Amino acid sequence: MTTLHVVSHSPFADDRLQSCIRLLRPEDGLLLCGNAVEALRDGTKPRALLDEAAAASRSIYALDEDLAARALAGLPEWLRAVDYAGFVELSCQYQRVNGWT
């Protein structure tokens, strides 16, 4: 069963993102939203974890509105930015949605 994992908390506040990445299966997806997009800042440990997950063919998405709100630039090529309509499409594409709250 495929799962879309949704993480919204800052990766610098707790270890939810790290725990989520450990549990990702190849067919799963990871959507970063809210403060979780801070994990994409280059040169950080969370970014290194995401780079490793992407290298292992994991699908990683981020809400473009949250990327813009935090003025994140220099995003990796493996990242797929989605709008809210894209978030809804992803929720339908995967069999389950798991929010890491």
Rank of each mutant, 00 (worst) to 15 (best):
A54Y: 15
R47K: 04
C20E: 03
R58C: 09
K45G: 08
D14T: 00
M1K: 07
R22H: 14
V7D: 00
L23V: 05
G74N: 10
Y61A: 03
R41N: 04
T2I: 10
L67N: 01
L23A: 12
V88A: 11
A81M: 02
T2E: 13
T3Q: 12
L24R: 01
Q18E: 10
L23S: 15
A48K: 14
T3W: 08
R58I: 15
R22K: 11
R22Q: 13
T44V: 08
P11L: 10
A54N: 12
H5S: 02
L17T: 02
S59V: 06
R47L: 08
F12P: 02
A54Q: 14
E27G: 13
D28Y: 08
D28L: 10
L49N: 08
V37F: 01
E52H: 12
Q93Y: 11
A73W: 02
R41G: 03
A62I: 02
L90P: 00
E65W: 11
Q95G: 15
F87S: 04
A48E: 15
S57G: 13
D14V: 00
A53E: 09
A55G: 03
A68G: 02
C92L: 06
P11S: 08
L75I: 08
N98E: 15
L79D: 10
R70M: 02
G34H: 01
P46T: 07
L31T: 05
E27S: 14
P11Y: 01
P46I: 08
G99S: 14
E77T: 14
A39H: 00
G99N: 13
R96E: 13
W100H: 04
H9V: 04
L50P: 12
R16H: 03
L31V: 07
V82R: 05
E65S: 15
W100R: 00
V7E: 01
N98R: 13
A54D: 12
L63R: 03
N35W: 05
L50Q: 07
A13Y: 05
L79I: 09
A13R: 03
E89K: 07
L4N: 06
D64M: 11
L67R: 11
Q93E: 06
D64P: 01
L17I: 01
K45D: 14
L49Q: 12
G29M: 00
Q93G: 03
Q95W: 11
L4R: 05
Q18T: 10
K45N: 12
A13K: 12
A85H: 06
L90V: 04
F12N: 01
R25V: 04
H5T: 10
D83C: 02
D66I: 05
A81E: 10
P11F: 01
V97W: 10
L79M: 11
A54W: 12
A13S: 13
V37M: 06
K45P: 07
V82E: 13
D83E: 06
H5G: 03
P11V: 03
S57V: 11
A13M: 09
G99K: 03
M1R: 07
V7C: 05
R25Y: 07
S8C: 07
Y94N: 04
H5Y: 06
D14W: 01
